[in-house]
Nucleic acid binder design. Structure first.
Length: 320
RNA sequence: GGCGUCGUAGCUCAGAUGGUAGAGCAGAGGACUGAAAAUCCUUGUGUCACUGGUUCAAUUCCAGUCGAUGCCA
């Protein structure tokens, strides 16, 4: 059952890891407020395992209430990773998450046959499952410059430049999306080669198998759960949490449903009750986008959150 | 009670000096490679409050009714 596996790519010495044959990563995902945290803890305790979070906003320890952190007794049940391990002031990106998660998984799989990746950030889940292309980190000043150009001269200037520097990507990208254009141009500028030439899109081989479990509810039920959870967050002190983070509202981590609406409320844009309604509405839309992403994934096996016994038997079967 | 203003898409509101109407938001669907709880795309027929009148033609003008709202009493 236990074998020795050498990992390529270590410079100084060949690293020997003890690992189970064919360990299993169970991805547990679904839209916001579907019950991932609870179900994840149930499953992970059943298998005496640990949880990696794949939630790009629960990384930040300052954002406990608004991102629905697992509560202390939940965290005590099962060992969690990547929950509150960063500050909103840290710079972090999906590439670093991929590296951190893969390194951790290699360690965990030395003595575990199954580990859980729980969260709703589809892109981050993909990075763990299939990897993303290696790209150098761009100079942060470059993004600021490109943003400034966008503000001053409009999107056309970025579209024209991308058309010239990387016509292949220009032909496939959503040219109306400033974020995509800025990203592509900053890569072109940093590397001196077209972005499209670096987008190899080769799925990486992983030393583990993957089972993807999606949980969701009928839309009306999910909407109801979202509404209730937002009310609970408010009761739990979200307004105060947001008020303390208000000075840092420009940080990317705080461009997040639940915070940005309250920041606007603090600015006097609308009363608190309206901010709360907007948080609910924006959470519903977020859930919709998540579902668009997840339902496209043919590997996803869908369950209601109540069907934990069926999930357990599927996981057991997959472990064989 | 008197005088005004308003009544148009689920919501907030544009609009045509008469030829049956359009934005934002919501809703629905979609995209997605270091911003991803982010960013972006597609999608708008509704008794234009009701009843009459004028007119070839009224949601638009006129009158009345109902409702909302403001001021005066």
């Amino acid at each position: 059952m236990i074998s020795k596996v050498s990992i390529d790519g270590c410079r100084d010495s060949i690293m020997i890891l003890m690992t189970f044959d064919n360990p299993l990563l169970v991805v547990l995902t679904g839209p916001t407020a579907s019950g991932k945290t609870r179900t994840g803890i149930h499953l992970a305790s059943h298998f005496h395992s640990e949880i990696l979070s794949a939630d790009s906003r629960q990384f930040f320890h300052e954002m406990k209430i608004g991102t629905a952190f697992p509560v202390p007794h939940e965290l005590a049940c099962v060992k969690h990773h990547f929950i509150g391990h960063l500050s909103i002031h840290d710079s972090y990106n999906i590439s670093r998450f991929e590296t951190d998660a893969i390194q951790l998984l290699e360690r965990l799989f030395q003595h575990r046959r199954v580990v859980f990746l729980v969260g709703g950030s589809g892109l981050y889940i993909n990075a763990v499952c299939h990897g993303i292309d290696f790209l150098p980190d761009p100079n942060p000043v470059m993004r600021i410059e490109l943003k400034l150009r966008l503000e001053q001269h409009g999107i056309a200037t970025l579209q024209e430049e991308l058309q010239k520097t990387d016509p292949e990507y220009a032909a496939m990208v959503d040219m109306a999306n400033p974020a995509r254009l800025i990203r592509a141009l900053e890569i072109c500028h940093t590397t001196g080669v077209p972005y499209s030439s670096l987008r190899l899109n080769n799925p990486k081989e992983r030393p583990f198998r993957i089972l993807k479990i999606g949980i969701t509810h009928p839309r009306e039920v999910l909407n109801e759960r979202i509404n209730n959870r937002v009310d609970q967050m408010i009761d739990a002190g979200l307004v105060e949490e947001a008020r303390q983070l208000y000075p840092y509202r420009h940080l990317n981590a705080l461009n997040t449903v639940g915070y940005k609406e309250l920041f606007d409320h603090f600015d006097g844009a609308y009363p608190l009750a309206m901010a709360i309604e907007k948080i609910k509405t924006h959470s519903r839309r977020y859930a919709k986008r998540q579902m668009t992403w997840f339902t496209k994934d043919a590997e996803m096996v869908w369950f209601l959150p109540s069907e934990t016994e069926r999930m357990i038997s599927l996981i057991e079967k997959s472990m064989c």
